[in-house]
Nucleic acid binder design. Structure first.
Length: 286
DNA sequence: CCTCATTCCTGCGGGC
DNA sequence: TGCCCGCAGGAATGAG
């Protein structure tokens, strides 16, 4: 399940394998994969064909590839989100189509194709105008904690100003982007905070500790190439990450907490799950 | 404006 | 053996 570290791994793969190449042909094979593109499949294919791909960019879990050759002057980009199961693969021409191949992009150099493969179709691609360096449709997405321009103090102030639970706040992409269910649980475990602690009740040290934890867990995941639990997540070269074995909370229900050996709890939360240590992560401060 | 529940999708695994 | 159901979850959407 791609969150920020996994998407960054994909971005680096795109930078390495796709930048500077010119699109020769585009096949949009599933309408849902391009549902965010207002013009539909034909418009998507026509407007992407002939364009030269720039260096891939990322904000949170979104990534985009700037497109050269736009004579209208308004910068444009190929924008993508991997959703839950999306992959961007670089595959040699002639490689058998993946079962869930949604979009194929071929290049004028007759080299390997760029393929968007997505089983559950929560992800998708679109073409979008770029303003101030960011695609218009993701202007509301906050900077992510690995962005050098992420404003720590402003985030902490906004977090403590919200009237919601701290995990809901972490998952709010307009407050801080790139954090999904996995890294939210891991960061909360590391910061020893219960997921339902009111964000407005966090002390300043607790809020700072949480942000440090978010950065640490993401940085460590990125260092080993992202998290992977199964074949659903694969990076641009088809290599899986292996951070899963280092998880302390997420998916660890019943297993001993790495700090105090108390069994990790799993409870329903926001139509998904929250994993936490009932001893290290108390709902109320003592 | 703010918060929060709902909805989309498909494959897998557990229970019966 | 086969069917049904729950589960995985990012983010747009609309209700309140």
């Amino acid at each position: 399940m791609p969150e920020l570290p996994e998407v960054e791994v994909v971005r680096r793969g795109l930078e390495r394998w796709a930048a500077g190449r010119t699109v020769a042909a585009v096949e949009a094979l599933h309408p849902r994969a391009i549902r965010r593109h207002p013009g539909g499949a034909d418009d998507f294919s026509a407007r992407l064909t002939g364009r030269t791909l720039g260096v891939a960019q990322r904000r949170g879990k979104y990534l985009w590839v700037p497109l050269d050759g736009d004579l209208e002057g308004g910068d444009e980009a190929l924008l993508g989100h991997l959703g839950m199961s999306g992959q961007l693969l670089i595959q040699p021409i002639g490689t058998p189509d993946e079962t869930h191949l949604r979009v194929r992009v071929a290049f004028t150099d007759d080299g390997p194709e760029l393929r968007f493969v997505d089983q559950r179709t929560f992800g998708g691609l679109s073409l979008d105008a770029v303003k101030d360096g960011v695609p218009l449709t993701i202007a509301h997405i906050a900077r992510d904690p690995l962005d050098p321009q992420f404003a720590d103090a402003a985030f902490i102030a906004a977090l403590r100003a919200k009237s919601t639970g701290v995990k809901r706040a972490l998952l709010d992409q307009s407050l801080i982007s790139g954090v999904g269910n996995i890294y939210a649980d891991e960061a909360l475990w590391r910061a020893r905070l219960h997921f339902e602690r009111p964000s407005s009740g966090l002390t300043l040290p607790e809020a700072k500790r949480l942000l440090v934890a978010v950065r640490e867990v993401m940085g460590e995941a990125l260092a080993v190439g992202g998290t992977s639990f199964d074949s659903l997540y694969v990076n641009v070269n088809g290599e899986s990450g292996y951070f899963a074995r280092a998880l302390n909370a997420y998916g660890q229900a019943g297993r001993p907490c790495g700090r105090c050996a108390t069994p990790i709890n799993r409870v329903a939360f926001m139509n998904r799950s929250s994993y936490y240590c009932p001893r290290c992560q108390k709902a109320a401060r003592p």
